[in-house]
């Protein structure tokens, strides 16, 4: 009984802090590029054990896909590449997900006449995570990326 009470007290107080951030995003390294060049950026992500996030191409129309977008600065996003998703079956639902550690790669093109200097490009990562018993509400995380144009 005491164990149950303690479990409940601890889980009620610590669960939100534990699970609300199921994905750890390593802050991206600053980029250095020349005007007119194409540069690659890799974002490192790690999903808490037991959780998964939906892939960029879920099979079910109701599922919220992971999506990385970049805005601001003289960089054009040419392509965002997600890893190959793993397929899992949850209940009667077939899901395509990412779990553990994975990378999202972005290819940028720096505008030809981009002025020299340092700018910040604003990344936004939207994702929705679940484990086998619950889902967390979708979240959008800001990812500032420093870019120096030489």
């Amino acid at each position: 009984m005491f164990r149950l009470a303690l479990c409940l007290a601890l889980s009620m107080s610590t669960l939100p802090a534990q699970i609300n951030k199921p994905v750890n995003i390593t802050p991206p390294e600053p980029l250095v590029a020349k005007a007119g060049a194409t540069v690659d950026q890799t974002l490192n992500l790690s999903v808490r054990e037991g959780f998964h996030v939906n892939s960029d191409k879920p099979k079910d129309e109701y599922i919220i896909p992971i999506k990385l977008t970049w805005t601001g600065g003289p960089l054009e996003t040419r392509q965002v590449t997600y890893p190959k998703a793993e397929e899992i079956k949850v209940g009667d639902q077939q899901l395509t997900v990412f779990s553990g550690s994975f990378l999202i790669k972005t290819q940028f093109h720096v505008a030809d006449g981009a002025p020299k200097g340092t700018v910040t490009v604003n990344g936004k990562l939207r994702y929705q995570a679940c484990n086998s018993e619950m889902c967390l509400r979708p979240i959008t995380v800001d990812i500032p990326l420093t870019v120096t144009i030489e």
């Binding site: 164990r3 303690l6 479990c7 409940l8 601890l10 889980s11 009620m12 610590t14 669960l15 699970i19 037991g50 484990n131 018993e133 619950m134």
Partner: peptide, 15 residues
């Protein structure tokens, strides 16, 4: 001891 308790609790919470 605290961690042991936490990990012995299910991730779903029933009050």
């Amino acid at each position: 001891a605290t961690l042991a308790f936490l990990f012995s609790c299910s991730s779903s919470t029933t009050v």
